[in-house]
Every structure is written in C-alpha cells, then in structure tokens.
Amino acid sequence: MLIETEDLTKVYPMGKEGFAALNGISLSIERGEFLAVMGPSGSGKSTLMNIIGCLDSPTSGKYLLEGEDVGAKSDLELAGIRNQKIGFAFQSFNLLPRATLIENVTLPLSYSRVPRRQRAQKAEEILQRVGLETKFNQTPTELSGGEQQRVALARALVNNPVIICADEPTGNLDTATSREIMEMLSELNKDGTTIILVTHDSENASYAKRIITLRDGRIVR
C-alpha cells in the first residue's frame, strides 16, 4: 500500500470549539491509482491533499506513506519527502513569476543534490515532454494559463515523484485546455505515477479510476 491513513483529523483554531476541516479520514491508496477527491468547497478536500502531500500535518490520526509513519518525521525529512516523492500542481500554478521556465523547473533539483550541469538538461527534457521546448527562457507571465500549468507539471515531474497531488489544476483554465491537462495527468498515471486529484468538476473526475467524496471532513462515498 502506498498511502494509508487512519482516522485523520485536522482542527483549525476558530471560535471555542475550533473548526474541524477533517473529521476522521481513513483511506488507502495503492501505487498507480488515479484518485479523484470530490466534494463541495469547505469539505476538506484541499486539507486532505495537503496532509497527503506532507505540506501540512494532521491534528490527530495516523498517516503511513510507503509504510512509514509521516507523523514521526522531522521538518527536514518532510522537506525531503516533498522534494523526492511528491509533485504538486495547484489551481493558481504557483510558479515563480520572474524566473524563467528552466529556473522554475530546476527549482526542486536545487534542493536535491543533483549536480548543476545535469539540472538544466533534465529540465529541458521535461519541458520538451510537456511541449514547451520553444520557451525555455521565457517567464511564466508571458505564457497562457494552460502553458503555465504545463510548466507546473514539468516542475512536479522533474524529480520523478511517486505521487502527483493536483489541487483543482484546471480551475483557472478553459474547457479545451482543461482537457489537455487532464489528458496529460492521465498519461502520467498510465506510466505508473499515482495521481491524487482534488476537483469539484465531475468531468475531470471521470478521468480517475476511483472517486471519493468528502463532506464536512468525512468521506461520504
């Protein structure tokens, strides 16, 4: 099993009781799955994805990634996991606006011990794979939304992650471009990468092999 969670909760301090974004999530995800997490806004989809992506930690509960207890990891180890095993794609792309595409894509490599000479080469390969071979030295602000998301995917892929966490990756894109991105994720999944997709769009969810739906921090389906 790639991911196993047991009774995950996440409570944000708010008012007297606090706000429970996650309310006991137990979930298993196998290697190579394409999982869509659906649900209305505020249902805890993003919170779950952030915890699975090791960006956030649960208030209680257990999270095993490749059999290892993530809760017991130090900040340093979590950074290593994010760097080596997880790739993110966000609704707002989250690229460095003034850095070139090459610089954006090599960013994860600069935090792993990849020799400098290999970095640009690797980044170029990946950018070619997502069809941006003519724009290496442009900056994200010069690109369309779809192209920016492809850069973000390239950055997510550059360290050969085990899991891609995509949080509403098509939320800012038109239908045609959305399809392109979804096709791309689908392709990646076929090549063996586990995909966790947070979306409230059922058309996007239809690319997934499994769909779970959250409501008020619980899995309802």
Partner: peptide, 16 residues
C-alpha cells in the same frame, strides 16, 4: 511569502 511557500512545496527545508 508565496515564493517561500512554493520553495517549501518543492522541497526546501527551513534551513534552506
């Protein structure tokens, strides 16, 4: 701040 978030998401440690 956002840049820090991005860097941390792709693997930067606190020390980095």
């Amino acid at each position: 701040t956002r840049e820090v978030g991005i860097r941390k998401a792709v693997g930067a440690t606190r020390q980095n």
